[in-house]
Design a binder for these strands. Structure first.
Lengths: 226, 226
DNA sequence: CGCGAGCTTGACGTTGTTCAACTAGAGTGG
DNA sequence: CCACTCTAGTTGAACAACGTCAAGCTCGCG
């Protein structure tokens, strides 16, 4: 299943970044990439290691997080079409975050030198990279705002809305993350995640059953998020 | 003092971004920029407004912050050589933050179209822009880490170290910001800033006298920052 | 069938915010 | 020049929010 010779030219999983590449540029990528399968819980990027590759997720969910001695902070749960590692372009030599598979993952690993090269030859690609960086900045700013201004229930509401709207795109979903992960996303104690989920459940805002969550009263969640 | 025809070619205040521009490219910038003087407390960028310009600070300190109904969050105190507005390149049409002058400011306002154009023609410039974006990401991540993992005294210690090491580059400085601003930097109540400054003062870690602050025991501050 | 990790619950203590009152200094107008 | 006002800064006490601790539960897996 995983192999390094999958043809980029006919890949229908391409990121919008790659849409306008010439056949020659796609060939360059193909020659400098491998497709890899990761199993659940495997580490894809380790914080602090040399940043020599860019990753493109073809299938599955990952968590992107900052490691810390006491506890981690999950920046984002990302899936299909996400590019990882752009934030190291031309800047730091080391990854500033870790990435772990939340389920079985298929991804393309591309050498950073090729990316740099194509950014020079292809203006559209270059623009897409900058867009991606700016979108990252916007996301982190939102997170910063959320964590610094909102209380526990608002933060958990935000997380649930994100799961429903963006990650699973369904008001009924089965979490790929533990309660502890939810705590790392919302920056609170695991116990508080449990208490609040129960509270939301009792108030008929959501329906919780283990990892299965259904959002019943979306507007109440939006209200909690303030 | 402020005028639009200052010559970019012979400007010795140039950001590293502009260092490798050709004479022709500098001429393009010159034709699409104005130099402006802002007085203390004037708004330079207003959150939500159209993002059609890039700003380059030639002189003076500004605060960059996210506005919020209840209270603001200061992202950075920036000064000479800082580029503002790059985070809107090719992405959002509106500024996601506000910028206000903390003292009298001289800056160059450059039309974003010229910046976009030069990013195509000059690879070095393009690389510098990406570096700048990535450095912004790193800064915000540090802030996120600080606010989410550290307690009040650690956060204030961080802020004081930043003022000493980066902003004023002197262990003795006169603050350009109010106590309330310090609170917006460290995400705490103004009262707590006052209490902690007093506590640090009593413990002979710093010496506070109104806006004048001297760092006496730097390593103790580093320790508090953990 | 038992072990262990993840989950759940309640009690309790700490941390940090809010409120209210007071002070000092800077600017304003008579 | 002196009241007056306004804002920034300061202080203490009460309170709420949140984290920690300890204990028990559940379920999957060997």
């Amino acid at each position: 299943m995983a192999n390094g010779s999958a043809n980029c030219l006919f890949c229908n999983n391409k990121s919008v970044c790659f849409n306008e590449l010439t056949d020659d540029e796609l060939k360059q990528i193909e020659d400098n990439k491998v497709e890899i399968l990761y199993k659940k819980d495997e580490t894809i990027i380790k914080q602090g290691s040399f940043a020599s590759n860019i990753y493109f997720i073809k299938k599955g969910l990952v968590k992107i997080y900052i490691e810390n001695s006491d506890r981690n902070l999950i920046l984002e749960i990302a899936g299909k079409s996400k590019m990882l590692g752009l934030t190291s372009l031309n800047h730091t030599k080391h990854y500033k975050f870790s990435v772990t598979a939340l389920e079985d993952i298929v991804l393309c690993q591309i050498n950073v030198e090729v990316i740099n090269k194509i950014m020079i030859t292809n203006q559209f690609f270059n623009t897409q990279v900058i867009k991606s960086l700016n979108s990252t900045i916007e996301k982190i700013l939102d997170k910063l705002h959320c964590i610094s201004h909102k209380q526990l229930n608002g933060r958990l509401a935000d997380a649930l809305i994100c799961f429903s709207d963006e990650i699973y795109q369904n008001n009924k979903f089965t979490l790929n993350v533990t309660r502890k992960d939810l705590a790392s996303i919302t920056n609170m104690a695991t116990e508080n995640v449990v208490r609040l989920l129960k509270e939301f459940n009792d108030k008929k805002i959501i329906k919780v059953s283990g990892k299965n969550i259904e959002i019943i009263n979306y507007s109440a969640l939006k209200e909690l998020s303030k």
